[in-house]
Design a protein around this nucleic acid. Structure first.
Length: 526
RNA sequence: GCCCCUCUAGCUCAAUGGUAGAGCAGUGGACUUUUAAUCCAUUGGUUCAGGGUUCGAGCCCCUGGGGGGGCACCA
């Protein structure tokens, strides 16, 4: 506990935090300070009468969902002899004199407590009436239904399990202020069903991915988060420092290069679901730390990666929501119902550009021709860009936003795909794909480049390109990775999927912050 | 980094530049089948902070801060 613990009674509190009643609130009013003071006084009263407002444990006989599963079908007005012990947080209380109805909630369900003064006695009844919304309670009682048919526990005994000293947000409207929702996620989860649902969906998706991959013989591994070189993608890294080694380290921006080392080592099928870090802007689609799933499969190529991508995501939707139908949002207000179980479109990047602008393009075209075309479509080209980079920019400017229904964009130019293998039918393109749904990039995969000589040349081309631009310091060539390739990387297919974006898609939410429990925010000023 | 929007009671929201209000939560009271219980009464505010304009600012202007959206960045 820190020394500025705000649970101190107000007359001792050295610092006001969000207690706006610092000047006006007192124990006789109903500001936050007064409210907390009242509840703290209850703690004192409980202790003085020999009770413990924070007991060590409570043994339930069942969860509320189990209770409902077993007794949910009882007819209205039924009393049973079935004794249960259940626990949860008090969310609502309805006091009608000598009866109190309280709604308690545990992780997965809610149930009503039926409390009769005649059953539990005057003292216990008064103590129960003294509970506050937000308190945790454990109760012993019998299963019943009310006249209206509400499944209830008729309370024989109850026990305060933990006192809530701070009041809950509005019981009906919950929390709507995004700032508060993200900073105080605990409060968001307590009062907003939608928030609980999104994170449940996220969990089910990740669990589904693991099941699918285990079923296909993939081994889950963990590779370093601290990298000597931030490779495997182009993004600005977070930089940190190791004291004992007195060296600069980077938080990883991709999983790729370590996982492929494991394929060199003969592990054949590996995957990792892990946090990666990119020191870029924050938006509805970007958080500085986010979760990537990458997998690598020996003897496979990009076509198998396309198949497994489709399978993983469709199965995850089914497992998380019970349906493969999702609603995707295109540009503007338009939305589209998509059944992920239907086959997904595949199209080459250059063909999608032609579709959009009516002119064929190819990285073998003269640079000046592509520059002119780019200019026509409002793409400002940097001098160092080659034909491949211009084609990618053209794609982003003219075609990408149209890809609302799931689409595998394939055949990225070699120039922008330094770790992907050249297309067996076109030396200017790679065997690569990116999956777009709702105009958002969801996944990226390819046939892995496994020729160590060619890989070194590609890295060197990257270096040259970076040296020409003044963007960021060029990442040094990863010599250890090249050494690994020299031992022999078998033919391999690789895939990366942005888990947060999959969760957004399947949960049907519009911001990445809705699927990240604690999104990155500026620190709160206390 | 740039542009737009936003910030009022613990929460959800009102308030032509003219006395800051309501609902919920809280407090007191009534009620033995409620369901956001209901009914009666009632407490609670440095309107994000600091400046300015004005007889008068929650409201208009400036600066700063938090958040949201968009752009840029993000192969």
């Amino acid at each position: 506990m820190s020394s500025d613990n705000d649970l101190e009674p107000p007359d001792h509190a050295p610092v006001a935090t969000d207690d706006a009643g610092l000047h006006g609130g007192d124990a006789t009013g109903s500001g936050l300070v007064a409210e907390k003071a009242k509840r703290l006084q209850k703690l004192t009263d409980i202790r003085e009468s020999g009770g413990n407002p924070y007991p060590y444990r409570f043994d339930r006989t069942c969860t509320l969902a189990e209770l409902r599963a077993e007794h949910g079908a009882l007819e209205a007005g039924t009393e049973t002899e079935v004794e249960v012990a259940v626990a949860g947080r008090v969310m609502l209380m309805r006091d009608s004199g000598k009866l109190i109805f309280a709604t308690v909630r545990d992780r997965d369900d809610e149930v009503q407590l039926f409390v009769s003064k005649a059953v539990i006695g005057d003292d216990a009844f008064a103590a129960l009436r003294d509970l506050d919304l937000g308190d945790w309670v454990g109760v012993h009682g019998t299963v019943m239904t009310t006249r209206k048919g509400e499944l209830s526990v008729k309370v024989q005994q109850f026990e305060l399990l933990s006192k809530a000293v701070r009041p809950l947000p509005d019981k009906w409207h919950g929390l709507t202020d995004t700032d508060t929702r993200f900073r105080q996620r605990y409060a968001d989860l307590i009062v907003n069903e939608e928030a609980r649902r999104s994170f449940r969906v996220r969990h089910e998706i990740i669990a589904s991915f693991r099941r699918t991959l285990h079923g296909r013989g993939f081994i889950e591994v963990e590779t370093p988060v601290l990298h000597v070189e931030a490779g495997g993608a182009h993004a600005r890294p977070f930089i940190t420092h190791h004291n004992a080694l007195d060296m600069q380290l980077y938080l990883r921006i991709a999983l790729e290069l370590h996982l492929k080392r494991l394929i060199v080592g003969g592990m054949e099928r590996v995957f990792e679901i892990g946090r990666i870090f990119r020191n870029e802007g924050i938006s509805t689609r970007h958080n500085p730390e986010f979760t990537m799933m990458e997998l690598y499969q020996a003897y496979g190529d990009y076509s198998e990666m396309i198949e497994i991508t489709e399978r993983l995501i469709t199965q995850a939707a089914l497992d998380a929501t019970g349906t493969s139908v999702v609603t995707v949002h295109g540009p503007g207000e338009a939305s589209l119902e998509v059944d992920l179980a239907q086959p997904w479109r595949q199209a080459r990047m250059i063909d999608l550009i032609e579709e959009a602008i009516g002119v064929p393009v190819h990285p073998s075209q003269p640079l000046e021709e592509l520059r002119a075309l780019a200019a026509q479509h409002g793409v400002a080209c940097a001098p160092r860009w080659g034909t491949g980079k211009i084609i990618e920019e053209l794609f982003e400017a003219t075609a990408e936003h149209r890809l609302v229904a799931p689409t595998f964009v394939t055949g990225h130019p070699v120039e922008i795909s330094p770790l992907a293998r050249v297309d067996r039918n076109d030396p200017f393109l790679t065997e690569r794909f990116e999956l777009f749904i709702g105009g958002r990039e969801i996944a990226n995969g390819y046939s892995e480049l496994n020729d160590p000589v060619e890989q070194r040349l590609r890295f060197e081309d990257e270096q040259t390109a970076k040296d020409l631009g003044d963007d960021e310091a060029a990442t040094a060539i990863d010599e250890d990775y090249l050494r690994a390739l020299e031992y022999g990387l078998p033919p391999t297919g690789g895939l990366g999927i942005g888990m947060d974006r999959v969760a957004m898609l399947i949960a049907g939410v519009h911001s990445i912050k809705e699927v990240i429990l604690f999104p990155t925010l500026r620190p709160e000023v206390f």
